[in-house]
């Protein structure tokens, strides 16, 4: 491809954007709105995943140890549990440590009178983490059958529900994102089709004087890419600003559900949006020129 031609293509693309000012504005708006929605979903989805993962990782099993076991028997029990293949970590929590925690959480007056070792009503227990959170119910079932363990607790129904919600959120988000990307592409195809239509006579003359197909196509493809890029730049800047604000707000108002920090996600997001804008623009225009090349 000659440099002269490349300059011609770029010049033509910009001239065309200027000539069809309103149409170009419409294309950019369509891409901007679509990518804004898509970007929002991307951020929501990413954070939903992050929060689910956070909650999933906090799921652990509490296994209460039967009252009458000796220290050696407890140690044997610990070894049995840690040898379960799904188990990652076992932590022994003694009666007094449990009481100490209760005191910290609820206040002095709650434990008053029970602080003596003999009168402490709390049992020894194990806190057990599994390698994958999904194994929690399985491990709980196995623990119940081990002699010496009096009681097993985990957020039974809650855990299962959490996992289910997590994957549903993921799938809905993904479906939406794909749908929006396709919609945006067809919208830009339609808009560029209008600018191509407005120049159909020019294209016909170009064909009659012997222009190659790519000579005709390039200016439109570049026009599409420019429109797609501008359309992607607007939501990128907007989401960059808005997400920063959202993170700040969440830190002061809902700090138990922390959003992913801006620097971790926004760079990826902007790269994704610019890439999508370029692809949408190029594909859209290529789609709409194709029909006019058949003379």
């Amino acid at each position: 491809m000659l440099i002269r031609n490349i300059l011609h293509y770029i010049k033509e693309a910009f001239l065309s954007i200027g000539r069809n000012g309103w149409m170009s504005f419409a294309s950019v708006s369509v891409v901007a709105v679509s990518l804004f929605i898509l970007g929002t979903f991307y951020l929501v989805n990413l954070n939903a995943e992050h929060i689910t993962a956070e909650l999933e990782s906090q799921v652990e099993i509490i296994a209460e140890v039967a009252e009458d076991l000796t220290a050696e028997e407890i140690e044997q029990l610990r070894v049995t549990v840690i040898q379960l293949p799904e188990v990652e970590e076992v932590r022994f929590v003694s009666k007094s440590e449990a009481l100490q925690r209760l005191k910290e959480r609820m206040g002095e007056e709650w434990v008053e009178g029970y602080e003596d070792e003999e009168r402490n009503p709390l049992p020894h227990s194990f806190e057990i983490r599994t390698i994958v959170p999904q194994d929690v119910p399985v491990v709980a079932g196995k623990l119940e059958k081990i002699p010496g363990i009096a009681d097993v607790e985990y957020g039974a129904g809650v855990v299962e529900k959490l996992f289910r919600v997590g994957s549903v959120v993921r799938w809905i988000g993904l479906t939406f994102m794909v749908g929006l990307a396709v919609t945006a592409m067809f919208l830009i195809a339609n808009t560029i089709k209008l600018t191509v239509n407005a120049r159909s006579k020019e294209i016909m003359i170009m064909k009659w004087v012997g222009a190659t197909e790519w000579f005709i196509r390039w200016p439109f493809v570049i026009e599409g890419i420019i429109l797609g890029l501008i359309g992607a730049l607007i939501p990128s800047l907007l989401l960059y600003y808005l997400y920063g604000e959202a993170v700040n707000w969440s830190q002061t108002n809902i700090n138990f559900l922390p959003l992913l920090p801006s620097y971790l996600v926004i760079g990826e997001l902007i790269k994704l949006l610019l890439l999508l804008g370029t692809i949408i623009g190029a594909l859209g225009s290529a789609l709409s020129v194709r029909r006019f090349l058949k003379v």
Binding site: R19, E202, M204, M206, W208, V209, G210, A211
Partner: peptide, 30 residues
């Protein structure tokens, strides 16, 4: 098509370009 010249009944000129540019267009395109 570059080796032949075509003339139509309905002219087929580009209205937004001057005479010179209309003729130059056929050369730019190739």
């Amino acid at each position: 098509r570059r080796s032949i010249g075509v003339v139509f009944q309905d002219f087929r000129l580009l209205e937004n370009r001057c005479v010179y540019d209309n003729v130059a267009f056929a050369m730019q395109v190739v």
